[in-house]
């Protein structure tokens, strides 16, 4: 840039930052504009996920085959994302599985502290393949010191009259001694 025959591009050097706290916004210490959008959606679920949710209402975990890729998929979908073909043949899976990975969570979405941490993770559901194949859920009836990858777990269902066709019809997964 020293040479005078070059076009100069000018820019501010090292612009400094300023500390800001959320109380500064609340107390209107800084000028700001506030808006609460009124935005709501109601998503259609589609045929495959609807059938899965109906299954949950009946206390069943359903899977569907992709025969071409030799997959038994859960949560089910109407097409296989690997071969791009349609899926076919519904199967009822067991409500047991293995912890694939987990985390012990101490914060809520706004980063407030939760005293009793939430155990959350991914369960590989028995019978579905190839591993890992399953979904995310809570863990219960175990302490944060007991939980580990590879642990066997079983679904704890809500009572039948409280189920509404949602992933939360399973309350959580608990330790499971059987095979």
């Amino acid at each position: 840039m020293e040479k005078s025959n070059k076009k100069e591009i000018t820019y501010p050097k090292n612009p400094a930052g300023t500390h800001l706290r959320s109380s500064d916004i609340r107390n209107k210490v800084i000028t700001h504009s506030w808006w609460e959008p009124e935005i709501q959606y109601a998503w259609s679920i589609g045929p495959a996920m609807s059938k899965f949710l109906h299954g949950l209402k009946e206390g069943k975990i359903l899977g569907i085959h992709c025969h071409k890729c030799k997959r038994l998929i859960t949560p089910p979908r109407s097409f296989c994302e690997y071969c791009y073909g349609p899926t076919d043949t519904w199967v009822e899976l067991k409500d047991t599985g293995t912890i694939n990975t987990y985390s012990i969570s101490y914060l809520d979405p706004n980063a407030n502290r939760i005293e009793d941490p939430i155990l959350i993770g991914v369960i590989s559901i028995d019978g579905a393949y190839p591993k890992p194949m399953g979904f995310m859920h809570y863990f219960g009836e175990m302490s944060k010191d007991e939980i580990k990858i590879g642990m066997r777990v079983k679904a704890v269902w809500k009572p039948e009259n409280e189920r509404e066709g949602a992933i939360t019809d399973i309350k959580y997964f608990k330790p499971y001694g059987g095979d």
């Binding site: 504009s33 808006w35 959008p37 935005i39 709501q40 259609s44």
Partner: peptide
């Protein structure tokens, strides 16, 4: 998939300059 959106006008209003 606009039929999933219950508040079309409000989303559009959200695109206006907030100040």
């Amino acid at each position: 998939k606009v039929s999933d959106l219950l508040t079309y006008g409000d989303v559009m209003l959200h695109a206006f300059d907030p100040i």
